[in-house]
Design a protein around this nucleic acid. Structure first.
Lengths: 68, 68
DNA sequence: AAAAATTTATTGTATTTCGATAAATTTTTA
DNA sequence: TAAAAATTTATCGAAATACAATAAATTTTT
């Protein structure tokens, strides 16, 4: 399974979900859904904005886990 | 911008696009689109299957590039 | 040159994002 | 510990997109 984890980077940047949502240009509600793995797909433009704001790589946010 | 690069992992696994598409369960045409950055979003289920088959992490395939 | 593999193109359908909004819940602060 | 702030959850609708299916064009391999 693919796990989305934005929390680590948010902590590293000392940024709140509210601030991220404002800067990324998504509603707070939708960033929350994203952040908590409640989405089934992601637009590359959104991933791009997140990486840009958090200054990180997709790999810092997305992880593949073997779910045996 | 977000860059998708499956070629490196395909080479590492000595796998063709055809083989990947069969194992992932997408048509060859669509894997090609994906592989060549012609998609604007990706389903996490698809990313999952690709990582599973290629035994790699999303970060091996997706890269954020500062497009100044 | 022929065959095989890959890319590009197109159309239709099902799925999904995301906005907008509101309510519920959790965390922080005073 | 009560109020305020932040976050999460939920719902609906519209717009966007993935992906299948298919076929043609192009490139690579033999």
């Amino acid at each position: 399974m693919i796990v989305i984890n934005v929390d680590v980077m948010l902590a590293k940047r000392k940024m709140s979900v509210t601030e991220l949502s404002e800067k990324v240009g998504l509603t707070m509600a939708n960033v929350s859904l994203l952040k908590n793995g409640k989405v089934k797909a992601i637009k590359l433009s959104t991933l791009n904005k997140i990486c840009e704001i958090l200054q990180c790589q997709p790999g810092d946010i997305l992880e593949y886990k073997n779910d045996f």
